[in-house]
């Protein structure tokens, strides 16, 4: 019993995965075969898939594994607007998220600084923030489509609006709760306002600001899938919707897995950055 907890956790994880895959495999293969008889006229109308049994069978883990392999072995092909590699689709989604998130950072951090520094601005803007924050970002979509008149830009706007609030609130909170002692140190050293902002307030608030960014990027990645399902064209959300229309469940499951993985990577990157600026007290 000298194995570390990490090794034991890994073994347990693998066991859980194996049990899950086995259960999935058994559940799917058990129900195979038969299906109701179908009117041949109807079968001719709806096509081959329906003719075999009326239902697309739920794919098993092996089918999905094959689909994942197929997608990952050629992720960047382009064969027309509705047939692009999954890597390209993820790339579109990532680009939108990073663009919308980047613009949100550029707005939220300076504005959050202002709100955090000035109790007046804080009180003046608080009602707006409180009302805007709980609005589902997708509710902005029709308005964005109407004013921007471009579906891709609209989805970037939706990402912007949903990543804005957590960063704004966290930045304001981080800036407002910088220890009075540290500000007094800057004051007794006659440090100017700009130098104070960069040498005292920013490093002191950085962990809180980055935590806000981490929350924001998580939300943005959740929202982009839904937004792309709405606006269509490109992106992993559109890919999922398109494969639903194709009744290709293996592709949908592949996409779901990849969405999860990319989201995890984004989260881990920001977690690393947060650790980098965190200071022990």
């Amino acid at each position: 019993m000298t194995r570390s907890i990490g090794v034991r956790a890994l073994v347990l994880s693998l066991v859980i995965l194996a049990v899950f895959l086995a259960a999935w495999h058994i559940a799917v293969s058990g129900g195979g075969g038969g299906g109701q008889a179908v009117d041949p006229e109807y079968a001719r109308l709806v096509g081959a898939a329906a003719a075999t049994g009326g239902q697309t069978p739920m794919p098993g883990p092996i089918d999905v594994g094959k689909a994942i392999w197929k997608h990952l072995s050629d992720p960047f092909y382009v064969r027309g607007t509705n047939d692009m590699g999954i890597g390209i689709q993820l790339g579109y989604s990532l680009a939108r998220v990073l663009l919308g998130f980047g613009i949100a950072v550029a707005v939220a951090v300076p504005l959050g600084f202002l709100i955090g520094m000035s109790p007046l601005v804080y009180r003046a803007l608080d009602p707006f923030i409180q009302v805007m924050k709980p609005i589902s970002p997708l509710a902005w979509m029709p308005l964005a489509l109407y004013t921007i008149k471009d579906s891709s830009l609209s989805s970037i706007f939706v990402i912007f609006i949903c990543s804005l609030w957590p960063m704004l609130i966290n930045t304001a909170f981080g800036v407002a709760s910088v220890r009075k002692d540290w500000l007094n140190v800057a004051r007794t050293l006659e440090v100017g306002p700009l130098r104070k902002a960069f040498t005292v307030i920013l490093p002191a608030a950085a962990p809180t600001i980055l935590t806000g960014m981490r929350i924001s990027v998580g939300i943005a990645w959740l929202v982009i899938v839904a937004a792309e399902m709405l606006v269509g064209g490109t992106g992993i959300g559109y890919f999922v919707w398109n494969q639903w229309n194709n009744l290709s469940l293996t592709d949908i499951i592949t996409a779901i897995l990849l969405i999860g993985l990319v989201g995890m990577v984004l989260d881990q990157i920001l977690a690393r950055l947060t650790r980098l600026v965190t200071y022990p007290e």
Partner: peptide
């Protein structure tokens, strides 16, 4: 009139910047 570099303060809680 306000703080000055001619007067140094030693704070009870040391006031060091931890980063």
């Amino acid at each position: 009139e306000g703080p000055s570099l001619d007067r140094a303060v030693i704070f009870q809680s040391h006031g060091l910047l931890p980063w």
